[in-house]
Design a binder for these strands. Structure first.
Lengths: 136, 136
DNA sequence: GTACAATCTAGAGTAAACTCTAGGTCAAGT
DNA sequence: ACTTGACCTAGAGTTTACTCTAGATTGTAC
């Protein structure tokens, strides 16, 4: 099976513009029909989804480009590609760690806000003061 | 204690350009001395670090701007700010989840590469074939 | 046989978040 | 007095990753 750019866009959820852009950047280069139109292969679906994954994990297009270039060179570059992925894995792992730390910090802040707001509310309910500026 | 923009930049690791940009965007507005120069307060350090955290967790500057505006309005906006953070927390939590899924996928791929490469090596060592194109 | 829908290319435009330049002020050291 | 270094503003330039426009072509439906 092979797909026109419109179909491929619909299947993958990536705009036609972006697909053409990715081609210009040598990420994914579909075959062409006799009339010059793009013809994406079945296997391109998995490939573009992998590209998506790399992007979603923060890999810049220049990096993905390098990976794509290796891939295009065939099996002899498998080790290099694995190397790239292993490196990227480490970066990703670290980023997740950072985000988790940020999350816990955010939780602390939210907890703090919650208690402060409760204090305010209590004060108002107790009528001990009419001022709103109770929590600073 | 208060700091010149140069000192504040050195302390926080944020470039002078960026600090001025953040001011233009109303994220952090330092006091001014009589001569018109910026004078950052001690408390601005914690504030900019919090801004950094929001940025690192993917909050766009427009959002941070809203938060800063609320903060500038004082204690009466605490509940709104908490609301914002709670929402952002949820987004962050989800993003971490996605990244973890991506990580595990990446691991699978790396494992696959590793075994494929091993197969190749074994084949070569066994002299069963001289071809390199063993793993596709 | 003509309208239309989808495609093509080259190149311009956009948005976000900086980053830098030019031209000017001002206080401190020599 | 004068140079130097840090600071000021307004506005231009950069980078990344798209996104869109204009003008041409092509295959299909009526």
């Amino acid at each position: 099976m092979n797909y026109s750019i419109g179909d491929f866009s619909a299947i993958t959820g990536i705009s036609i513009y972006t697909l053409r852009y990715y081609e210009k950047e040598s990420l994914i280069i579909p075959a062409r029909k006799e009339n010059g139109r793009r013809s994406y292969a079945e296997s391109d679906i998995a490939w573009i989804q992998f590209i998506k994954r790399l992007k979603d994990t923060g890999m810049p297009i220049r990096e993905i480009q390098k990976y794509a270039k290796l891939r295009a060179q065939g099996v002899t570059t498998m080790a290099d590609r694995m190397e790239m992925l292993a490196r990227h894995r480490a970066v990703l792992k670290e980023e997740i760690g950072k985000l988790e730390e940020h999350l816990s910090n955010l939780d602390d802040k939210i907890t703090y806000y919650r208690t402060e707001i409760r204090k305010c509310t209590n004060l108002r309910e107790d009528r001990r003061t009419a001022e709103v500026s109770c929590c600073t």
